[in-house]
Design a binder for these strands. Structure first.
Lengths: 162, 162
DNA sequence: TGAGTATGGTTGGTACATGCAACTAGTTGA
DNA sequence: TCAACTAGTTGCATGTACCAACCATACTCA
């Protein structure tokens, strides 16, 4: 690790900070405005459905940890997903306080449709990118996310053990 | 432009879509949680301050256009910035319905402090990245944002001229 | 084994960001 | 000059989020 960063690196950091600020504000909207039928499920719900799909049945707490959200937030979102019939609660055999959340068949379908929508939007945005840039962007984004995740986990941990 | 994308490209798009979903949800939190003193101004306010700083006095409508937000949203945020003494309204000589928004000196200071905070957070996250990755990420993010901006402008325009 | 503590989840209250609809006040053009 | 338009604000609804208080179950240890 370098102790002295060059001005070029600093400029990159500044630019990244700037671009992230814009990106965060704009990205959601494209999903909602650009894709006419994308509102199949709301933004928050989509993440939950996708994660349940990828990971299989999970407890609410596991979702909260993954998204770094308050348990109450997840609880409400799960409730509305359940009411919409996209997710089902099963009792957790190992802990009767808890439950396990599973995608329903309808949830599967909705996830598939929404994901296709969203991928279509992203594909449209990246239409003219070179293969190399695509691959690069994907891996850099993933790396950045990993850093974010780590950072968030760390500050959460600090809170509980000061 | 290619009509047929390879499976490798599709995988990149899928991965990018996935990572963006996470990024959007997580990025804001790092600014708020990771940086103890970052709450100098809220997320929404920061963007406005920064843009006013870069562009000089602007009308609310110009801000709304830049951020692709509803005029009412900007109006409220500007009101609270004004109450906090970060932004001042001046009458617009050319149109008495409108006004021009200018950073106050205090606004300048707060922007500088907040920006430093945020850049610090980003720098921390990118600490171990190579110079090349930094530069790449910065330029790819910028390109993606430009695409987003274009896409959002387009759908806005379609609304008014169907 | 029973009291005290810890944990998983839910609910109440609150705050903020945002959009749409309705409104006010000023501008423009036939 | 009057109708149509535009800039901005305000009222109302919704989505997302947090914290605090709470319930039920699980765990610990004297």
């Amino acid at each position: 690790m370098q102790l002295v960063e060059s001005t070029a690196d600093l400029a990159s950091v500044e630019s990244i900070e700037q671009e992230l600020t814009l990106l965060v504000r704009r990205a959601q909207k494209v999903y909602l405005r650009g894709a006419p039928a994308a509102q199949v499920v709301e933004r928050a719900a989509y993440g939950i459905l996708a994660w349940l799909h990828d990971m299989g049945p999970l407890r609410p707490g596991a979702l909260a940890a993954h998204f770094h959200l308050d348990a109450s937030t997840i609880s409400r979102q799960v409730t509305s997903l359940e009411q919409a019939g996209l997710v089902a609660r099963e009792p957790d055999a190992e802990d009767r306080r808890a439950c396990r959340l599973r995608l329903t068949e309808h949830g599967q379908e909705v996830l598939t449709a929404t994901r296709a929508e969203r991928r279509g939007v992203v594909r449209g945005l990246l239409q003219s990118w070179s293969r190399e840039d695509l691959a690069n962007f994907a891996s850099l984004l993933a790396a950045f996310n990993a850093g974010l995740d780590h950072q968030l986990s760390q500050s959460t941990r600090e809170e509980s053990q000061p």
